[in-house]
Design a protein around this nucleic acid. Structure first.
Lengths: 268, 268
DNA sequence: GCATCTTGTCCGGAATATCGGACTGTCGTA
DNA sequence: TACGACAGTCCGATATTCCGGACAAGATGC
């Protein structure tokens, strides 16, 4: 994993792909295509994909056409561009409905959303980033929404603190790219501050933050522990910054309660 | 597409896979594995998958492990069994959030569900079966739920009538396997009755049915037409059989209105 | 008009992924 | 105990997939 020049191909290689530069198997190319589309979150043409992946054009055309045939990709957007297809949704739904996985979280989100009307999410760590796995959008005037599957730097989120409690300071700094400490508002977060946040989250069993990803939100995150005692997921509320203190406290209490119920009951 | 002996491998071959019996590419094997899991809707072991697909065991182990590594499959169930993984859900969510595809349908379902409290679905034809693409479960005492992605014989459903209006009688009888005329209650539906149902749905612009898939439900289906004038989707209500007539009529009117709004505005 | 960059397709060659089969252990069961 | 079925791993050979490169046709820019 070199740190010379950054590129999509290398970023994905670090995340998923085994070897790079060499001749690759079709299945590896296919996974690369899908991961790229997930990261970019918009239709891409075969040529763009090949360039981003540093893969042969002819190969990508072949793979993309096969995936379209299977319904996992679909023509989308202007000309020759593709994005995820209908079959992918069916696969994803089958996962959600399966016993293990997110089923219990979906019910928890429903209940939390119904009880508060606020935006509530289930999040996890993936490729050393933070991702929203599932969410229920709030009903208020300021409708705070979040995108499932988009990877966000861990230091930008309250959940980022709650997800790293089992790691040493050194391990944490190793897995977070330095660039991720640059917040979206341009400010730089000190790594030491972040480490102290993580320690605080570990001690309290939750973390509250504001002004991180957005200055209009107040975020609460509570870890959900797997059987191995590691925080595999978080449950979080995303509240408007001007929420009443009582409302905040009520939400946090509900969150802690639900997270406790889910802990250990889920795969780690 | 032979009609000699039925097997999973052949059923899937007819649906998705190009050639069978020969050496196959990894990507084709992978797609076969995913389609099989979607069809079975439960965790399977590598051995079971290999047997069902008539594929070499060593190859399936290899493919399954690669898919697990990518998060598209996950260990699930007792021992060595696998099912869809977290990454699949992220891919599927990206599809749902994309402009084309089901986004507009999701909003329509929300609105219909909110207005009536009934179970409402968006359905389509896939592999010459009926599948639910997305749904909102009703709120009533008799909570009627439906499983997204499960393939059901077209003659079992009201939507099955509404989806075939653009086809000739002959074409319809060709694409429906004879076994699909056997209803879940054991009764046999006459093909001619089905053809006349389809004609009726074409004329009325909707179809209502009861006692088909279940004797406790009253189903309403309205086609949604793509740019090519073909019914690409249906919107349907699944009501308890004892719903008041006024409620039924109100639901049907809402359904027709929404389907009209969605027609042509969506990819065919 | 010419140069440059695309997209999409096609083709032959060679690196290698798929396959069949062997092997070990484990579990029931007769 | 012997037997059969199954999970999981490993390995060598060869049929084939992936790759690089060429090509036509269209866009774009100067």
């Amino acid at each position: 994993m070199t740190l010379t020049q950054s590129s999509d191909a290398e970023a994905l290689a670090g995340a998923m792909l085994p070897r790079t530069g060499e001749r690759q198997r079709g299945i590896d190319r296919a996974i690369g295509v899908l991961e790229l589309l997930l990261q970019r979150r918009q239709p891409l043409s075969a040529g763009e994909i090949a360039r981003a992946l540093k893969a042969p054009r002819s190969t990508i055309y072949e793979i993309v056409n096969r995936l379209i045939e299977a319904g996992m990709l679909e023509p989308a957007g202007a000309e020759g561009q593709v994005f995820f297809g209908r079959t992918m949704h069916l696969f994803g739904s089958a996962y959600l409905n399966s016993d293990s996985g997110l089923r219990r979280f979906g019910e928890a989100l429903d209940s939390l959303s119904a009880a508060t009307g606020a935006t509530v999410q289930c999040c996890t760590r993936r490729n050393n980033k933070y991702v929203v796995l599932d969410c229920r959008d709030g009903t208020g005037a300021f409708r705070i929404t979040s995108e499932v599957g988009a990877e966000v730097p861990l230091p930008w989120t309250a959940s980022g603190r709650a997800l790293l409690g089992h790691l040493s300071d050194e391990a944490i700094l190793t897995l977070i790219p330095p660039a991720d400490f640059r917040l979206p508002n341009g400010g730089l977060l000190s790594p030491n501050q972040f480490l102290s946040d993580v320690a605080q989250a570990r001690q309290n069993g939750f973390f509250e933050a504001t002004g991180l990803a957005s200055s209009y939100t107040w975020c609460q995150a509570v870890p959900v522990f797997g059987r191995n005692g590691i925080a595999a997921f978080t449950l979080c509320f995303v509240l408007p910054i001007d929420s009443a203190v009582e409302q905040r406290e009520r939400c946090l209490a509900l969150l802690i309660e639900k997270a406790r119920q889910l802990s250990h009951a889920t795969a780690g």
